[in-house]
Write a protein that binds this DNA or RNA. Structure first.
Length: 374
DNA sequence: AAATCCAACAACCGCCGGTTC
DNA sequence: TGAACCGGCGGTTGTTGGATT
């Protein structure tokens, strides 16, 4: 073990604070192409003015495609509580039992929810509020749609179609209340969705079991198969959905070197530009159910009714969220229209077959060593 | 409507253990 | 053998935005 070690980086030379979309994109693109064998060298190689540690944390906790977002399910919470009894604050160990969850996220959940809940339990104070809360937090295990709208500590926007239709927004936590405000607006689709098989039925199959093939060892899962366009597109969607329009301007200690989004060299990032091309063609014609031939489209049932329901719901949702953007704008300026990528992500999540549904922020690319059993 | 409080969570910091030279 | 390097971990802080007063 060394001593008197040098700091990992010169704090004066690196940018700190929230990550900008351009930085995220650069990091994602670099890791997709080259992996992350050396975190310390990575920022320089990738052209990022960030500490290697910061890059690592950003990737692991946020950008990694297999990060599962959204509320913790009741099962997950119970698992955390159980594991914490045995392991204590060994967040990374606990995280290894929870596919898609990061140690940081678990730590936060513990500190903000579970610890308090246990405290009140132990004090015999736990009563109805507790059960209310648990019924809400458990909702995301099934068909929740999560639009992560920003990158820096802001609330995620979550719309849980199946579980929040019938709940009032009273006594909701902020996030749930906001989600409710959206789903309330969508109430007029409820009838339609109940009359026809809902586009969101599929995710039910998707609970934690379908994402069990998770590799918690980041080091061994660094490489995304960039030869697979689906990985590229999926990653971009995942990434792109992280921002809102305003966030792009949020900077701390701006060195102003990276904020010209998309200044990735054309020559060296052909994959990336291919990715953008795919994205553009994907969204340029609106919802492209027709392209989902064969088994994909069959996952959602067939016929125009569902398609119409999908479209209607989606457009209403876009309106509700203020995301409605002309397709031309989308294509012309991706970097300046940071809110736009939410739309393709929505499409992505809605249209992808069940294997990918719910993986909007979650891609299992390795399944070697994880054993969820406790 | 403004001020304050508080929950949530991304990000930072410092230390530790393993590995390399 | 031990200094240096590196990734990882756990604790803590800072920022944000909704809720409450």
């Amino acid at each position: 073990m060394g001593k008197g070690r040098a700091p990992c980086c010169d704090k004066n030379q690196v940018k700190r604070g929230p990550w900008s979309p351009a930085e995220d994109l650069r990091l994602i693109t670099f890791i997709q192409k080259h992996g992350h064998e050396n975190w310390r060298a990575l920022p320089k190689q990738a052209g990022l003015l960030r500490c290697g540690k910061s890059c690592r944390l950003r990737w692991i906790n946020y950008l990694r495609p297999d990060v599962k977002r959204g509320n913790f399910t009741r099962e997950e919470e119970d698992t955390i509580i159980r594991l914490h009894e045995g392991l204590g604050n060994k967040w990374s160990k606990i995280a290894s039992h929870l596919p898609g969850r990061t140690d940081n996220e678990i730590k936060n959940v513990w500190n903000t929810h579970l610890k308090r809940r246990l405290a009140s339990k132990n004090g015999n104070i736990l009563q109805t509020d507790e059960s209310k809360e648990s019924s809400m937090t458990s909702s995301s295990s099934c068909s929740s749609i999560t639009f992560v709208s920003s990158s820096s500590g802001k609330r995620n926007l979550e719309i849980d179609i199946e579980h929040q239709w019938d709940e009032g927004s009273v006594n909701k936590k902020p996030r749930e209340a906001f989600a409710m405000s959206v789903s309330d607006k969508a109430q007029d689709f409820k009838t339609e969705l109940s009359n026809h098989s809902s586009p969101f039925e599929e995710p039910k199959e998707l609970s934690s079991s379908s994402i069990s093939s998770y590799n918690s060892n980041i080091t061994n899962s660094s490489q995304i198969d960039v030869s697979n366009p689906e990985n590229q597109a999926g990653s971009l969607f995942n990434f792109a959905g992280l921002y809102d329009a305003n966030n792009a301007s949020e900077e701390v200690n701006k060195p102003e070197i990276l904020d010209t989004a998309f200044d990735i060299p054309l020559e060296s990032d052909l994959d990336f530009w291919d990715m953008l091309d795919n994205l553009g063609s994907f969204q340029s014609d609106g919802i492209q159910l027709h392209e989902m031939e064969g088994n994909q489209s069959s996952n959602f049932g067939e016929g125009y009714i569902k398609e119409a329901v999908n479209k209607k719901w989606l457009h209403d949702l876009e309106n509700e969220l203020g995301l409605e953007v002309t397709r031309d704008e989308n294509q012309n300026d991706l970097s300046n229209n940071a809110a736009e990528p939410l739309v393709p992500e929505m499409y992505d999540m809605l249209l992808k077959p069940e294997a990918d549904m719910g993986m909007g922020h979650y891609h299992a690319w390795s399944s070697s060593q994880h054993s969820p059993a406790i």
